[in-house]
């Protein structure tokens, strides 16, 4: 074999490393978590009681906690993010665009633990005072901070989608006498809708998988939140908070990996949907 062939083989192995890692992640996650999922069956997902001391494992409260804070975050971030994307793609003067672009990059770059600190000290206190609740560590606080964290994804991917709407569509609409807003609403947004939806689903995956911010802000109270002013606990938080006390191989340890499996499956489904939607249009 000549050098070129050897280099090619080595580079192939390098290229496949990411695939190998994802394979190993799935393998080890299921190896550790599957036994308890099999034993507990649907009860693991539908059970409301989580008591590792008595070996009772029902993850419903955490699933509801994760989903409620995620949907609240989307509720806040989608209108705001799509508006910013429309601004960038449709009306932004060059100066405003060049000022705003670094804003998105920096928002995306701030570490999640810093968002968590900011949320705990500013947002949580603000909510405690302004809504007069016993604790500000609530779904609302978590939703607000997660919304800020997923804004960059929604803005940048939606902007790409809006910018890829063919110019003739717009010009046709203008030629028919439509105003800019009518064109945005009837032509641009519908044409870009699949890309925008893909960005929202991707953002949802990020929000569900987010750990450090939610663990600091949600209050980590094991209850199904009845309103957005209740505390909650997320799937990711349980893993982070309880891994330290679960001894390797115990049922508690396996249950935490089982939560990891649930999280992994949710995120993978969202990822596949967003890829499928994003691709279909192209």
């Amino acid at each position: 074999m000549n050098t070129e062939k050897i280099v090619e083989k080595i580079l192939l192995i390098f290229a496949l490393s990411a695939t190998l890692v994802i394979f190993l992640i799935i393998l080890f996650l299921f190896k550790e978590g599957l036994p308890i999922l099999k034993k507990e069956g649907l009860g693991f997902i539908l059970g409301k009681v989580w008591n590792p001391g008595k070996e009772i494992y029902g993850a419903l409260t955490f699933i509801v906690g994760s989903l409620s804070v995620t949907f609240l975050a989307l509720f806040i971030a989608v209108p705001l993010g799509v508006s910013c994307a429309l601004f960038l793609a449709e009306i932004a003067p060059k100066r405003a665009e060049s000022l705003f672009r670094p804003v998105i990059e920096l928002l995306a770059g701030i570490p999640s633990v810093v968002y968590g600190m900011f949320g705990l000290i500013v947002i949580v206190r603000f909510i405690k005072v302004s809504f007069d609740v016993p604790t500000g560590e609530t779904v609302l606080a978590g939703g607000i901070v997660l919304a800020i964290m997923i804004l960059p994804i929604i803005i940048s991917i939606s902007e790409d989608a809006i910018k890829s709407v063919p110019r003739i569509y717009k010009e046709g609409s203008f030629a028919l006498g439509a105003t800019h807003w009518q064109t945005m609403r009837r032509v641009i947004l519908p044409t870009a809708s699949s890309g925008i939806t893909a960005s929202i689903i991707l953002a949802m995956g990020r929000a569900i998988g987010e750990t450090m911010a939610v663990v600091l802000i949600l209050g980590n109270v094991e209850m199904i939140p009845k309103s957005i002013l209740n505390p909650a606990e997320a799937l990711t938080s349980v893993i982070l908070l309880e891994m330290g006390e679960a001894s390797v191989g115990s049922s508690h340890y396996q249950a935490l990996f089982a939560i990891g499996i649930i999280l992994f499956i949710i995120v993978m489904i969202l990822n596949i949907i967003s890829v499928k939607i994003g691709v279909r249009k192209k």
């Binding site: 695939t19 998988g209 999280l263």
Partner: peptide
């Protein structure tokens, strides 16, 4: 290769920890 990289990119950080 691309599918593996895209999938890995979507994995939540806490799962990397586990």
């Amino acid at each position: 290769i691309r599918f593996g990289a895209d999938t890995l990119n979507a994995v939540p950080s806490i799962i990397f920890g586990l």
